[in-house]
Design a protein around this nucleic acid. Sequence first.
RNA 1: GCCGAUGUAGCUCAACGGUAGAGCAACUGAUUUGUAAUCAGUAGGUUGGAGGUUCGAUUCCUCUCAUCGGCUCCA
Length: 645
Amino acid sequence: MADKVKVALPDGSKKEHAVGTSVEQILREFDPSLAKTALVASLNGRTVDLSEKVGEDSEVRFFSFDSEQGREAFWHSTSHVMAQAVRDLFPGVKLAIGPSIEEGFYYDFDTEDPFEPDDLERIEKRMREIIKQDFAFRREEVSKSEAEEIFRQGGESYKLEILSELEGDTAVLYRHDDFVDLCRGPHVPTTGVIKSFKLLSVAGAYWRGSERNPMLQRIYGVSFPKREELDQYLKRLEEMKRRDHRVLGKELELFSISDEVGPGLVLWHPKGAMIRKVIEDYWLEEHLKHDYQLIYTPHVARLHLWERSGHTGFYQENMFSTMKVEGEEYQLKPMNCPFHILIYKSKLRSYRDLPLKLAELGACYRYERSGVLLGLSRVRGFTMDDAHIFCKPEQLEEEVIKLLDFSLSMLRTLGFDDYQIFLSTRPEKSIGEEQNWDTAQEALRQALESQNLEFEVDKGGGAFYGPKIDLKIKDVMGRPQQCTTIQFDFNIPERFDLTFVDSDGNFHRPIMIHRALLGSLERFFGVLIEHFAGAFPLWLSPVQIRIMPITDEQNPYSAGVERRLKEEGFRVELDDRNEKINYKIREAEKEKIPYMFIVGKKEVQDKNLSVRRHKKGDLGRFDTDEVIDKLKEEVKKKAPEPVSF
RNA sequence: GCCGAUGUAGCUCAACGGUAGAGCAACUGAUUUGUAAUCAGUAGGUUGGAGGUUCGAUUCCUCUCAUCGGCUCCA
């Protein structure tokens, strides 16, 4: 056996090291400054501790906190420190799991008494002590039976359960101080590298996410190598709170959800309703341009329809209970598709009719469990911007391409040009011919590839009735938001025996695509509010302009301006209250009204306007016609940013 | 649905088991004001709801409804 190995370094160079040299030693030699920030490394693609020793020719990489691997190890290590702190302070708790997550980490504990928010401070204090002592994280490979012994003694039943499901004969333990955990690793070198952290919240969580299992207590936290990074993170949380659509929705009088109406049912107030109407108008205009036909359908239908569509079978738990009318059961609709299908079926369809595209802003009602409702994001009554496309198999790819293009252009106009795309394929439990699935999945993939769109494949993530493409937009805070969905359906055309007459004179089954571009108007509105922090672009603003006379001497002139602007199609208000101009401005700014026209003596005399823009301040005095032209242009362009004056 | 927290005036928040208070908003009056809060006065509450403990409950207990943070699912 050779006593030297070749190590390929990140800069492409190669170096010989003795077998058993630690990654850390290699790193120190390679780049002493990187050695200060590196947390973990990889050997031939396998992420490892810095203390790992090389045993064969390897390609080595180093990861600091700025990489995914580095962050994961960092957060995961913090969760171990937290687990020790909890174990020290609350003897008798059992440890479940404590992974890193997208932003931070959590650890699940089984404890008789749930943690209280005050406990977090105590735990933090103990964590600081553990960190200060700078314990090394030590990796240890033991036989399964050895590990079993350790956890049996500790009464760690969850660890034993995980252990029993591990493949192979060995288990990996990580120790620091007197704390031991079953863990794949890797970890950062010592507890001391965790310079700043914060425990954020306590929450209940089921063991392995299933409600049949015991409820555990989960503590969430986040940590960083530098104090400033934690501060920045906390600032971001503040910013998210400031943008919260539930808060802004109340402040700006956009919508409310009333106890008396019921949970998850939205009241659109005049200002929210105006924004919705502008979006709807734009939506309809675009759909007509894209060869869709507008339809309207009822909110309820005989239960029979839902039996035929299959919803009473596979969707029952999400539906409101039925109601009885004249001895007949009726069902509030959770979806629009059966109605659209009946319109398709209302006459004999020829291949010349295809693709047939029926679109509707359809109000749907779904039973959502009380614990999951959330502002506008998760409701029980919502409006889907729904459409169904009936087409021939060979039209599929082209239709999907058109859909993607349509969706992206509409979202761009509404202010979103950052997104992620997911292609979800056949799940285990599914219906339909395998060949149909393959063709359909291939069509979706081809469509995405031909448009040079990057996408991730969610294997087995499709609906049981067909594959789908989902599009998540990223809002201004970088949070992904479920939005467009394009789903094939092999089930429902079958159930309703949909046909068309092809050029060969025979009946064939059309393919049906369900699609929603915005998703639901309610959820989309919530995303929109947070994206713009309530300061909507001019074309969407419920009140576009407020005219503010300085004294009541200017009221008549201001009223004339108001009339003129209304005639020009602007949504405008006149603030002729007996208040100081500063006060009027303050209120208009707080209401995030895009334009304020201030009218004093000078403006009346010169028959012009002083223009103030929300957040920007005074823009100066301008000729009225010029201002109107500029603003019209801004509206017409649906400009996300104000035009320049 | 489950675990935990919360629920007081339109909003934001106070009030040791002893008849509930402030700021903002609203209303009235004065003030006629030049780019983010003029001054004064008035009114506003079955303390989410129902029960219980107590001489007495916003405060303690039980149930219930809703909201928030999560678990799961999705538009």
